[in-house]
Amino acid sequence: MAVTKADLADALFNQLGLNKREAKEFVELFFEKIRHSLENGQAVKLSGFGNFGLREKRSRPGRNPKTGEEIPISERRVVTFRASQKLKQRVEENSTLLKQKYTQEERVEANVGSG
């Protein structure tokens, strides 16, 4: 199950009482502000969640994995994300549960696939 913008807007509606249109617009604007900052070359630091940073990658030789043909990969700027210590810890503490959850999901998918 994946969380989407619609789920996030629902949370603003349910938890904070924003109306549906406001909530949807707020979620949209939230991600747009982060994109805009990164586009302007500015990292975004959200304490307790993580940091979005930027990295310059030099051009390097690449290859089309299908044909094996050599094509250069041009220099580029890319977005990186580093989860905060707090978020990493929350995920790590749940690792045992997560492992069970993922194993169950795999089983369900396997059953659906064979059925």
Binding site: F52, F81, A83, K88, V91, E92, S95, L98, K99
Partner: peptide, 8 residues
């Protein structure tokens, strides 16, 4: 031990 880490 093995663990999960967030990825973006």
């Amino acid at each position: 031990p093995d663990k999960y880490v967030p990825h973006f």
